[in-house]
Design a protein around this nucleic acid. Structure first.
Lengths: 152, 152
DNA sequence: TTCGTTTTCTTGATCAATTCCAGTTAGTGG
DNA sequence: CCACTAACTGGAATTGATCAAGAAAACGAA
């Protein structure tokens, strides 16, 4: 199924902007809205920032892309959906890496108490320092001083 | 140990604003900066917003309070630190409830692959609908239409 | 105590990410 | 090919948070 059919199947109109957004999110590695906008413009010329946000909103609402929001970074998007995988986030460069969920379906964990909540998802984020930042190779925003690495 | 001694022990000066912030965070239930500012003002009169942010920053930096940032809500603060507990977040009203971590120390989970990261924390957020919102009692911002409850 | 240093607080501007709005453009089903 | 409506544009506005410079206050030392 190509992207045009995917969009139509989700009840969305097929536009150059949305095809480019979908491709940018799939090709990129957990890009944020700004980087997606940049990639989209490099592909189809001028596209307003609002169109990018609108497109991302439509795609997330229909479940074609997933939006993740690690603390301290803008929202990021990925096309890997439905497999309930988790994420590894670097405290320094904020880079995101996927991690398979051993349990499969959501919610993959059972809380010790549910407090009456109707739980549908367990979101797991592993925080640490990525290989590049550990070796000083990474483009860390503040790699000069590792400072305190807080614990949970 | 009272709050003044706690602040001093963390290397911070003792001010009325900070004592009030610490008390507001402890008394409140995962309040955001705005609500903390409101509580502080009700206790010690005028305090600038900046002083509240600065105080919260100082308290989080020294580990006296923990800052959590659930997707879609402003940062929230709690005084329960060091026990690596987790959170239950309501998709509708954004309310937060603590959940004990059965494993104890951080990181409480081992990822299936570490990808070379030096991992120090596993943050677990359970998403669902709280009892109040389920029964329609809650002050949900958009409780009229439950809309789609996305899955992980 | 009083002083001097350093932190903290104040006011006010600024920022980044995102959303709202009104009008125009362009997919799509008929 | 038309009409209807979703999608896009340009621009302003919102929210949550930070930065900057000077004034005030905490606290160790004299």
């Amino acid at each position: 199924m190509d992207d045009a059919a995917t969009l139509r199947g989700a009840g969305l109109r097929v536009t150059a902007a949305r095809l480019a957004i979908l491709d940018a999110v799939r090709t990129g590695n957990h890009l944020d809205a700004e980087h997606i906008a940049h990639a989209v413009r490099g592909r189809v010329g001028h596209v307003s920032t609002q169109a990018v946000y609108d497109g991302l909103h439509a795609l997330t609402d229909t479940g074609l892309v997933r939006r993740i929001e690690p603390a301290g970074s803008p929202a990021r998007y990925e096309t890997r959906v439905g497999d309930n995988h988790h994420h590894l986030v670097c405290r320094l460069c904020k880079g995101v890496t996927d991690i398979d969920c051993v349990a499969g379906a959501a919610p993959c964990l059972e809380p010790s108490q549910s407090h009456g909540y109707l739980i549908d998802e367990a979101e797991v984020v592993f925080w640490g320092v990525c290989p590049d930042c550990r070796s000083g190779t990474g483009e860390a925003p503040n790699a000069s001083e590792p400072s305190a690495v807080p614990r949970g």
